[in-house]
Design a protein around this nucleic acid. Sequence first.
DNA 1: CTGCATCCGAATCGATACTG
DNA 2: CAGTATCGATTCGGATGCAG
Lengths: 127, 127
Amino acid sequence: MVTKRLLKGLPEDADLRRADSLAREIFSDVANKWALLIIEALGERTLRFSELRGEVEGISHKMLTQNLRMLERNGLVDRKVHPTVPPRVEYTLTEPGRALRTAVDALCGWTHQHLAHIERARGRFDA
Amino acid sequence: MVTKRLLKGLPEDADLRRADSLAREIFSDVANKWALLIIEALGERTLRFSELRGEVEGISHKMLTQNLRMLERNGLVDRKVHPTVPPRVEYTLTEPGRALRTAVDALCGWTHQHLAHIERARGRFDA
DNA sequence: CTGCATCCGAATCGATACTG
DNA sequence: CAGTATCGATTCGGATGCAG
């Protein structure tokens, strides 16, 4: 299976070990709340920093810049700076970023589909 | 879109607001590295605590119990205790947990498919 | 407007020790 | 074997101030 190497590590080959640690690094970057919500917010659109901040409920200035830098570094978002005053910076998903959307959509969809079930499970557990 | 409410909050209706904050809570629980890797490790199998620890590369005893408790609380994993000595505790995905697997699989698959691209993007960015 | 730096409290995490 | 508790250390995250 394609996901195996994310789970049981320690391959013999040095190249495989490198690829594997890289995979886990990327997975850690991407599998976090804010990164995923930013991806979802961008979707097919191009948004400015301030617009993005309005779209992602509850994110702080700092977390937004931090995660945008990380996503840019990994080549998931494209950052375009317009040399105007005041500055205008636009963010757009790259091709890999858009590819990631299917996974994020699935996650968001799953969340909403199981709201009721989870709420009931919590009630039972907390008792 | 089904994911909208995860992004721009502040619905007028009180019930909608509650459902929305619950959704964000669940999303925060689930959208984290360890939770997703545990789901992926379990898959269709039933695993003991110690086996699980061996499958999820690099997870600590503490993180594993912590995340298992959280997943159990949300009704994503089933915890079965065998009253033997030494104790034997088995974990299995519930139906909602298995449903989540499609999203996790997509995420893991995406990671491996874009390894090379991301590595190159990083090289450019870090320069 | 965007982004960087800084401070500081809060949350996370790993390591260790201890119980049934 | 599985789980809990505790303790430092690191990281996270929000708030604020300053610069381009």
